[in-house]
Nucleic acid binder design. Structure first.
Lengths: 252, 252
DNA sequence: CGCAATATTGACCACTCTCAATGAGGGTGG
DNA sequence: CCACCCTCATTGAGAGTGGTCAATATTGCG
């Protein structure tokens, strides 16, 4: 199986400003010239396809990646083929920050569906951020944001039961889609139940059962990968641990 | 109860170079002058004591903190007094990185034992890192390292059972103490069983039972807060999921 | 010295995992 | 175009880890 497709990032200048870091960081105070300079170091590739590997754990770190369209999962391959999914990355989100530290990727990144990905050579970005103070500031914020998000995930895994996890996960996706102008209540899951389970620390079967249960409770309708959130309030109640079904309040 | 002791960081110049960021980042290529400049912005306070609050969730972010001696826990206070412990911070470790993003602390920091803490006003650090390229580089690495460590924690909480978590936790402490020149096998836990449980996503009772079981298996001896690791190999085997008692290999 | 917080230990049970079987899609090749 | 296969998803039954509740040390602090 051609798991490792060779990916070539070409330095093609496309009519696509505002597609990289710029849109990530909210109150970005870069001058148009600075945006130009940033844009100049961003590389764009032809579309990638499901299964394409962006980078592999252990490989040398050179670039950050930004999802323009589509989605990517990051995961740590374990011995014997098992894998632990660390995150799903939707349009506008950045990948590879964990590798700055050691200069090596500590996880792998794989494309989940046909996607457009930008590559940003980190060294150049670093140099540029010395010259553009507000870029440095945004970089610090970007890294900090990632830390904050992982902390939230720690809380999710540490204290919440299965249905709270899945509800939170769906609401997280919803919010992120919404932020990119997509529907917050009607979307496709590019990842499998197994990958969702791995990400949430649950068995596939549990995820599947929860989808069924959520449907019975009219919280959503799910047909395979197509999900429609029907009762956002109900989902939020569950996600925050106030769901009626939740007998298990871990730390009251 | 005087939970919120007022802490004053004074800009006292102490004979204590190499006590802040410098020692954190391994191959720090700062010139002596740069170290001087970095040192100049670091503030030191009188010793803090158990229960002192470094910063509170929701408060404005101004500074990072570096533990010189002692230990600090970070946690998110939840309604009803419950709290979720996000991390324990030992000497040489930095706190507050999650707050850069929003300018507000998203968790609280509380001192677990008599400790010496340095405060680093972030804005000054940011300015300085524009002037000192290698400092910027170290900052990126520092933030990235935090991301990587949280990812490891995600794996721990997602895939590991109770004994694997506790073994990993103890080995992590051991390693961090060792790195600071302290004993890797004989140390005091400044945090309560409850806090350990919260951090590891376990009930207090489970933590307590595991300490008992580990003692029965001669892996360690624990008397209250004093812990001595007796069988490092055994602990490592457990932490990596190869422990004999571990029936539950989640993803084979 | 006594109260309060922390730890330990036991009994019970529920949530979720494991094992197992079936069903549904998607792709390939004849 | 259909048969076949393989992966993914769903559903059921049983079991186990770890949580909850409760009672009892033990420690620490005022």
């Amino acid at each position: 199986m051609p798991e490792h497709k060779v990916i070539s990032f070409e330095n093609i200048k496309v009519a696509c400003k505002n597609c990289s870091l710029v849109t990530l960081c909210l109150p970005m105070s870069l001058t148009p010239e600075d945006v130009e300079r940033l844009d100049a170091i961003v590389m764009r590739s032809r579309p990638l396809h499901r299964g394409d590997v962006l980078f592999q754990a252990g490989s040398r770190f050179r670039s950050l990646y930004v999802v323009k369209t589509g989605s990517v999962k990051t995961y740590t391959p374990s011995e014997e083929g098992g894998e632990q999914v660390l995150g799903f990355h939707l349009p506008g989100e950045i990948i590879g920050l964990e590798a700055i530290q050691s200069g090596q990727h500590t996880c792998s990144g794989k494309v989940l569906e046909t996607s457009a990905i930008c590559e940003i050579p980190f060294q150049r970005l670093e140099e540029l951020s010395l010259a553009i103070p507000s870029l440095q500031h945004q970089m610090y914020r970007l890294l900090s944001k990632e830390i904050g998000q992982e902390s939230e995930m720690l809380m999710l895994l540490g204290k919440r039961n299965a249905e709270e996890r899945l509800a939170s996960f769906l609401l997280s996706l919803s919010e992120r889609f919404k932020k990119r102008g997509l529907s917050a209540t009607d979307f496709y899951l590019s990842m499998s139940r197994h990958e969702i389970g791995s990400y949430l620390g649950l068995a596939v079967e549990t995820v599947s059962r929860l989808f069924t249960r959520f449907q019975e409770e009219s919280l959503l309708s799910a047909e395979r990968k197509h999900v429609q959130l029907r009762d956002m309030e109900g989902l939020k109640a569950i996600a925050s641990g106030q769901g009626s079904t939740s007998h298990t309040r871990r730390f009251p």
